[in-house]
Design a binder for these strands. Structure first.
Lengths: 188, 188
DNA sequence: CGGGACATGTAACACGTTACATGATTAG
DNA sequence: CTAATCATGTAACGTGTTACATGTCCCG
């Protein structure tokens, strides 16, 4: 009845990872089992995001529902495969997601690393923009935390909230200096 | 058919947090709405773990199923409250959980902070043991990461896995040095 | 011929999130 | 009077996890 706000659909990190792997293939296509191997233990992606084969099929289904991927061949081949390919809408959505830095420090460990991995595969110039924007977001967080510190000092706060804040500062600063090293390494 | 391994039930961080708050009350009792307030924005716990009232009732239900909490009064009072109290089994399980350091660096931000908050409320001596054991676990992780670094150097690895490893080293080292500061602060 | 890798999925279950339903009491 | 707060929960929905079911192909 109400005109629903209808916010655009978003995928999970795992779904964007699958989408990105498809995009990185020359023909933008692949099949489930093959994708699943990229997420196995001992692989670069697998060291960041481990996915069982069952979950990969699950994510491919969802990507189809979203219209970001479509089936391009039912198993005439042996062994019987179902190949899917990324659609133009899928490429657009992937590009949007890849260009956005993550908002929270805790997301660096999973989501940002996945973005970085895919950006390196797909589009080197995008990598540098992503890093720069992520750095800006983290710097802003550093400022917010410093502000909270001053507020605590004025309020005479000296307990648990201070411990929480110092942990966040430590983790955010660690992420910032790591990002600097990454930038250097890629600039060389 | 098989003699099922039957691993002991474990709660989620949120469930242990609720259990811990009950344990910290003099009579080991409380009711849902009151517990929910402790997880609101602007509170110490709420800055680490935000829980809506609905979720708190949900967790209390689960704690009852586990036998860690029991109902001690149906609402004769006004306003109609249902009070629950922690059981001996609940106290035992809480103590076990509180004594265990977390295994992964990413769990420091949520799970370890909740343990620390509850240990500070409940049992000061436990705090120092918890910190010492957590420190040992993190030191061990530091060693593992250094080992991975050597292996990479020998293998001539120079790509994405190295970036992942350096991030982990940075985050783990940040946690270790933060823990040191916490220890100092509490030792004073 | 047997076992492992290839290949695709379903089923069952727990979990978290959001929104909603209900009603009494109290403060302005 | 009416709005906020106290108080308890349910319903609906989507997500992630694990295990299992099914069958083919290829290598030794």
């Amino acid at each position: 009845m109400n005109p629903v706000p209808a916010r655009p659909p978003r995928g999970s990190v795992a779904e964007y990872a699958v989408l990105g792997l498809l995009a990185s293939a020359e023909d933008g296509a692949g099949h489930g089992y093959d994708l699943a191997r990229r997420f196995a233990a001992g692989t670069p992606l697998g060291s960041v995001l481990r996915l069982e084969a069952g979950m990969v099929y699950h994510h491919v289904k969802k990507l189809e529902r979203l219209g970001w991927v479509r089936s391009v061949s039912e198993g005439g081949q042996r062994p019987a495969r179902r190949t899917v390919a990324i659609t133009p809408a899928g490429r657009a959505e992937l590009a949007r997601w890849l260009g956005e830095p993550v908002q929270h420090t805790r997301e660096i460990r999973l989501e940002f690393l996945v973005k970085l991995y895919l950006a390196l595969l797909l589009d080197r110039p995008v990598v540098l923009r992503l890093i720069a924007e992520q750095d800006a977001v983290l710097q802003q967080r550093t400022g917010l935390l410093a502000g909270a510190e001053s507020a605590e000092l004025e309020a005479g706060e000296s307990g648990f909230p201070g411990l929480v804040r110092t942990l966040r500062q430590a983790q955010t600063e660690a992420a910032v200096s790591w990002l600097g090293r990454v930038r250097q390494r890629l600039g060389e």
